[in-house]
Amino acid sequence: MVKLAYVQLAGCCGCLVSLADTYERLLEILDAVDLVYCQTLMDEREVPSCDVCIVEGAVCLNHEHMVEEVKEIERKADTIVALGACAATGNFMRHSRGNQRGRPTHEAFVPVTEVLDVDYAVPGCPPSPETIETFLVLLLEGKEELLKPFAELAKKTSYCGCDLMEEIINKSMCMGCGTCAANCPARAIEMIDGRPVLNKDRCIKCGACIVSCPRFLWIGDEPIIKAFDVGKVEEGGE
């Protein structure tokens, strides 16, 4: 059974909540793994050796213990997953400037993808329960071909709503469908004249807009044809 560790760094725990929001399917996922570390759910203080380490949250470079924990992950885990935008892209932690009463010296936050050799990244704030479930099932079943997009996304360590402009609209790719606006958790995108217009003050840099764009990343027709029985004549037909 796959030994799974779940490490929480600087974040809000929302990704774990989203994972739990798969309802009874969460139990199936937990049945399929040997959960060896997860401070929210169990009393285990050190990250043990594991096959997969899921990391949620950004790394605070001014937090000595957190930096040590991150180095520990590198030594203990075979496969590292950056779950959620804070771990994958920095997310709203990118806006931190420190000098807050609780921890005035904590100002530098980077995504895990910047400091570790991360195998897979799942952006989104939080990624929806179905996205996390789909990813985990593919991971546990070892479907490397279908995991490729998540592996590619681990290479992109920062996002912003203005990516839509540079990567999609500037490249004459945007057909104005509004997927980006629908996926933005901050309602930072408005569709004007058939194109997304970003309200930069609202953007939390989670990457949900551009990653959900079908022109940025297409998952292939095959998984869709299979999932919805496109072209399938049912028994008794003909």
Binding site: S18, S128, C206, V211, I219, I224
Partner: peptide, 11 residues
């Protein structure tokens, strides 16, 4: 695509 991977769209 969103029905397979609904990144920011819960349920």
């Amino acid at each position: 695509k969103l029905q397979i991977v609904p990144l920011g769209m819960r349920h």
